[in-house]
Each structure stands twice: as structure tokens, then as C-alpha cells.
Design a protein around this nucleic acid. Structure first.
Lengths: 196, 196
DNA sequence: CCGAAATGTCAACATGGCTGACATAAAAGC
DNA sequence: GCTTTTATGTCAGCCATGTTGACATTTCGG
């Protein structure tokens, strides 16, 4: 009897523990993503723009297809925000050297300035959390987040991390992922998200 | 000179490290939230419904105001999804015992079933990540996520965790938070979100 | 009794997803 | 060289979910 009760309690604690993790993720992401919005709103931009600016900044000369595979949205959705960013002079498109069908995306100086402005507060928030938590905790943080990802994404991320980090050319692993794989709820909208 | 170069490198590594964390959060959240959507879609529901179901399940007899403060959306937005969930028999409303203006929200059996169904895959994903990462990493994970949250939210969360966890009555700390504080991008839409 | 609080509701609008249908240019294959 | 694929863009319309603003109702509290 005591065994059974202990077992049930174990189970309860386990579920409780898991739900706590889920909620931490929710709250942290919610607060984290809440930061860049004011800046974006000033510019008349939204989260979707932020994501695009972030990843184009991160992977200079990225192709549209690669960007789509990262964002997991349709090209129609992307074209709306991307077109606007190009029109407003945040991003320039240039034909690929080898494959001239490709429109390589790169931030302009204006785009770079906005990107830095946008991610500055977020980096500071992460830096603060890292500092408080300590190096060991940061390792755990990263390990668990990696574990939360889908297999393919984890592999892609680790490959990119092992290489020089997306800067020197977009990571082939991410590019290899098929676009529009499954549904991506969160946010939505909102989810969505506290970009990227 | 060597000092300067080292300093710059330090700085570069720091920013690189921070961006890596940001991206890990993005990817993990994206994949994490991607899971429940198929089930939701079958039911003709969206992420917003999931969030409501999750938190009502988590805080039985929660008031509308409390739920709003957790979700950080307007009552009009909430009423749309909440009304639907009530109409479809997932949630029941009952007048508060002390304050009869309140509409206490509780999951029906049908609602409970759906909630468990929905969060099952997510809990499994978290459990898997925890198992792989180990107890120590999990601690770090939680510490950093807490550090990413806004001060008030962190305090509220820790208070709720210290108490019996929302189950025995909604957490007063969360209820105390003002609704509609700031903008909440991400997510995705959405992000946000991979609910909750 | 009266003001404030908790809730609901109508109306209109913005963002950012999605599908479907095409169009174009360049690469690739035969 | 002709054909097929691929990379990209674009138009049109729909849906989910967020927002603001204006009110109405019920109930609490002093």
C-alpha cells in the first residue's frame, strides 16, 4: 500500500515537474518575446519582420528557400514581409553567382542597424539570465533546449554550431530541411513570438 | 595589441554565445509548440483554445480576470475562444461563491480529456529532453528560464511553485498581475506558440 | 444609494498564417 | 535543343487571433 502510494506520488511529482517545465518555457518565451515589439511598432513593423531581419542578418546572402525552411512558413507569407523590408530598404536582393535564379538576401546598413537595435535588448536579457544562473546552468539550459527540438533540427543546429556558425554562408543543414514540414502553432500569431 | 584582440574576441564570443541561446530558444519553442496542433486541428480548434484549456485545467475555478492576466490578451480576444469552448462543452462557468460577479471557469470531463490528450505529447517531449539531459541540466534549464522572465512574473511563478502549485486554487500572485501589461510578440504567433 | 469592479458584447480593423492558381527565368537532364 | 525541374514571385481570398473603443449588466463595497 505504501508502495502504491509512493508510486502514485512519484507519478504525480513527475507530471507536476513536467508541467512546470512547460510553463516556464511559456512564461519565459512570452516575456522574452515581449521586448522587441515596442521598437518594431515604432517602425510600423511586426514580429514577422523581426524574424526575417534576424535570420537574414544571421545568414548573409541566404536564399529564399533556406529562409523559408528556417521560418517554416509559406513563400506567400514570407513574400509579404520580405517585400516590405526590401521596399523599405532594410534588405537587398542579389542574383546568385552560380545559380542566378536565386535571390540572395542581405541586410543593408539600415537593416543591420535595425537588427542590432532589435536584438540588443534580447541579448541583454539573455546575458542577464546567463550571468545570474552561471556557466553550468547555461550548459544545462542549452542541453535541454536541444533535447526539446526535433531530431533533424537538433542535428542541423549542432552542425551549424560546430561549423563557424551561420555567418560564413548559410548552414547547409538548415537549407536541407524541407520547407513547410508540419504545422507550427504557437503563436502566433503570436506566438508567436518574441522573435526570432 | 594582443589584449585588444583578445578583448574583441571575447566580445565576439559573447555575442555569438548569446545569439546561440536566442536561437535555441526559438527552435526549441517552435518544435515544442508544433506538436499539439494536429490534434487541435482535428477538433477544429487553434492554439488560443489550447492555451485556455491548459490554464483552466491547471487552475480549476479560475476567474476570467486571472486567466486574462496569465494570457496577456484582451477580454474580447479571450471571449471569442472561451465562448466557443463553453458552447462546445469543454468548459463550464459558475458564479463565484463569495463574489457572484465572477464566472469561475472549470474544465468538464470532456475538457479534461482533451487537455490530457493535448499536453500528453508535450509532456513526453519534455520528459525525453529531461531524461537525456540529466537532473543537473534540468536545474540549469529552469534557472535560466526563470532568469529570462520579467521580475514580477518570476516572483509570481516562484510563489506559485512554492505553494502547492496552482491546483489548489488559482495562484494569487498570478492573479495580482495587471492584465495587458505590454505587447507580447512572438508568437507566434505566434507564436506563438507551442502552447501553453 | 452610488461608484467601482467583473464580465460580456458589438463592431471594426490589423497581422500574419494558409491554400490555390499561375507566371517567369534559369538550371538540369536527355 | 527541347523538356522538365527548380527557385522565385504574385494575385486573390480565407481564417485565426490579436487590438481598440464603446456600452450594458450584475454585483460588491462603502
Amino acid at each position: 500500500m505504501a508502495d502504491i502510494k509512493a508510486g502514485i506520488n512519484q507519478l504525480f511529482l513527475r507530471e507536476e515537474e513536467l508541467r512546470q517545465g512547460i510553463e516556464l518555457l511559456f512564461y519565459a518565451y512570452r516575456d522574452f518575446t515581449g521586448e522587441a515589439d515596442a521598437i518594431l511598432a515604432d517602425q510600423g513593423l511586426g514580429r514577422a519582420h523581426h524574424r526575417v531581419i534576424y535570420f537574414v542578418g544571421r545568414h548573409p546572402a541566404i536564399t529564399v528557400t533556406e529562409l523559408l525552411s528556417i521560418l517554416r512558413i509559406t513563400k506567400q507569407s514570407l513574400s509579404r514581409v520580405l517585400g516590405e523590408l526590401v521596399r523599405r530598404g532594410y534588405i537587398v536582393q542579389s542574383a546568385g553567382a552560380q545559380d542566378r535564379r536565386q535571390r540572395l538576401l542581405t541586410l543593408t546598413d539600415k537593416g543591420i542597424a535595425l537588427e542590432r537595435h532589435l536584438s540588443e535588448t534580447q541579448r541583454q536579457r539573455v546575458a542577464r539570465a546567463y550571468r545570474r544562473a552561471g556557466a553550468e546552468a547555461v550548459e544545462g539550459f542549452k542541453t535541454v533546449l536541444l533535447g526539446l527540438m526535433n531530431e533533424e533540427d537538433r542535428a542541423a543546429f549542432m552542425a551549424a554550431a560546430a561549423a563557424g556558425r551561420g555567418d560564413r554562408g548559410p548552414s547547409p543543414s538548415l537549407a536541407a530541411a524541407p520547407a513547410r514540414t508540419g504545422p507550427t502553432p504557437g503563436g502566433a500569431g503570436r506566438a508567436d513570438g518574441g522573435d526570432p
